[in-house]
Nucleic acid binder design. Structure first.
Lengths: 157, 157
DNA sequence: CTTGACCTTCCCACGATGGTAAACCCTAAG
DNA sequence: CTTAGGGTTTACCATCGTGGGAAGGTCAAG
C-alpha cells in the first residue's frame, strides 16, 4: 500500500504518517525500489490505533507508551489504566481551567447591556487592577498556559 | 520604567512584552538614548489589561479587538459583548470536546480491571475499527489538546 | 511519449511562551 | 575611576501537532 492509501485507510494524513515516522513513533516504513513507502495491514492497524488515541486527546508521548503496552503481550492492565487515569486527570485540569474562564465571562456578559452605550462591565473588569483575589496565596498549577512565572529577576533594586 | 519593572507591575514577562510589541499588539515603546525600552503607567495599565484578558483565555487576535474597543470611547457595549460571546462559544466547544474524551475514557477505565492481567478494554477499544460512531456525520470539531490548529483534516475517504 | 496523479524531501508557518548567548548599559561599592 | 553584578538588547532555537507549498522523481493510463 502507498502512503496515500494508508492515509485513507487509517484516517491519518500522509503528512502525519511521515511525521510519526520521523519522530520515531512508528518504525521506518519499507520502501519500494524507487523510494515510495509501503504499508502493510498491520501498519494501517497501528496508524489507526494512533489516530484513535489522538482523538481521545493522548499526546504523541503518551501514545508511545500506549503502543508499547499494546505490543507487550505480557502487559499488566493496571499500567494501561494508570496511563489513562493520568491523561484523564490532565484533561480534567484543563476542563476545569476553561470552565473557570467561561463562568467568569458568562457572569460578566450577564451584566453587560449589550446595546449602543459604551459602558461595559467586561472592559471595566479587564481594566481594573487585581480585585477579588480570593486566594492571596500563590496558587501553583491549575492554570494551563504560562507555566513559568516571570520571576527571574531579583528584587535587588 | 524599565521593562523589568513594567513586567513586575503588569505581571507580563519581559519576553512577552517584547513579543507583543513585535507583533503589533502594543505600540513600540519609547527608548532611552541607550536603547532601553521605557514604560509609562498607561503602558503598564494596557499590559495588565492584556494579561487579564489572556487569563480569561482570549487569544492575542481577540485582544487586539478588545484593546480597540477599550480605546474607543464611542464603542457600543454590544460589540464587546459579541466578542465575549464568541470567545465563550469557542471555549464551550473545546470544553465539550474534552468532556467527550474524558467520558469515553472514564467509561473504559471503569471496565478495566487494572490488575496484573494483560486484558484491557482501553487498548481493545483503541485497537478496534470504528465502532460506536454515534454520529456518522463528520465531526469537524473535536479539537483535542490546546489546539488552535484546524484539526479539520481533509479525510477524502 | 505525454499527462496527470502520485510520491519524495525540504523548508516555512502557526500560537504563545521559554531558553540561551553575546554584547551592551547602568549603578553602587571599593 | 574601576570593577562587579545585574538589567537590557537582539537574535536564534525549541516547543507541539498540523498544514502548505515548492522542486523534482515515479507510475500508469492514454
Amino acid at each position: 500500500m502507498n502512503i496515500g492509501e494508508a492515509s485513507k485507510a487509517s484516517k491519518v494524513s500522509a503528512k502525519m504518517i511521515r511525521y510519526y515516522e520521523q519522530i520515531g513513533l512508528i518504525p521506518p516504513a519499507d520502501r519500494t525500489e524507487s523510494g515510495y513507502r509501503t504499508y502493510t495491514q498491520a501498519d494501517i492497524h497501528r496508524l489507526h490505533f494512533i489516530r484513535r488515541a489522538r482523538d481521545l486527546g493522548f499526546s504523541v508521548a503518551e501514545i508511545t507508551n500506549l503502543l508499547g503496552l499494546w505490543n507487550d503481550k505480557s502487559r499488566q492492565s493496571a499500567d494501561v489504566k494508570r496511563l489513562a487515569q493520568q491523561h484523564i486527570a490532565e484533561l480534567d485540569r484543563r476542563i476545569e481551567s476553561m470552565l473557570q474562564m467561561t463562568e467568569t465571562l458568562k457572569a460578566l456578559i450577564h451584566c453587560c447591556a449589550g446595546d449602543e452605550r459604551p459602558d461595559c462591565p467586561i472592559l471595566q473588569t479587564l481594566e481594573q487592577p487585581d480585585t477579588s483575589e480570593d486566594e492571596p496565596e500563590e496558587r501553583t498549577g491549575a492554570v494551563p498556559r504560562r507555566s513559568h512565572g516571570t520571576r527571574t529577576a531579583k528584587r535587588s533594586r
